[in-house]
């Protein structure tokens, strides 16, 4: 399971899960699962979320330490 700051970044951008989901064309549930670390998005989706939230990839996503 990878770590992410999607929730914090989304809240800073004043977006609901539904609005972010609509922007990156996934369901609200997918955004929710990404935020709690229960779903690992593909690189395309990671990039799309970063663009929607105006952040860099390593600002939002990083692997868990081994």
């Amino acid at each position: 399971m990878n770590h992410n700051r999607v929730k914090q970044a989304r809240q800073e951008a004043n977006l609901s899960q539904q609005k972010l989901a609509a922007q990156v064309q996934v369901t609200r549930q997918t955004i929710s699962l990404i935020e709690v670390g229960k779903y690992n998005p593909t690189i395309n989706l990671c990039i799309a979320i970063c663009k929607a939230l105006n952040k860099r990839l390593d600002d939002l996503f990083w692997p868990e330490k081994e």
Partner: peptide
């Protein structure tokens, strides 16, 4: 380039 036009949710797929 990431293109997400008319794309299905990857998790659902």
């Amino acid at each position: 380039m990431v293109s997400l036009t008319r794309q299905k949710d990857e998790r659902v797929v």
